[in-house]
Amino acid sequence: MHELSVSRAIVDTAVAHADGRRVTAVQVRLGRLRQVVPRSLAFYFELVARETVCDGARLDQELVPAALRCEDCGHTWEIDLPDFRCPRCASVNVTVATGEELEVTSIEVEEASACIV
């Protein structure tokens, strides 16, 4: 459901960096813990991009797995289910190592080619 808002934020970020140039692709990194559905995001992105310089741009989504780190024993592991306790020492002093990303990493824009004399 929040894919609409997230796509708006992505398009706004891309437009701000495009400097008026046409955007042909937008690269994003999405952490699994952000609960963004890739197909939904692609759908809304196309819709929101219309009437901006991102119209027709490709959305490249890099999905980042959720990994946790135990601050007590140093164990690092990936999770599929939202279990935020250390499987090695049972500590709850656990931090998210990866999986909370929601970043625009780059955009691809069209530029007029320089004249070759």
């Binding site: 997230v6 970020t13 891309a14 970043e103 824009v109 530029e111």
Partner: peptide, 17 residues
């Protein structure tokens, strides 16, 4: 025309923050 990659690395929700 040619294509150029522009590196950004910005949280998509920066504007909200």
């Amino acid at each position: 025309m040619h294509r150029v990659k522009v590196r950004i690395v910005q949280d998509a929700l920066d504007a909200n923050a």
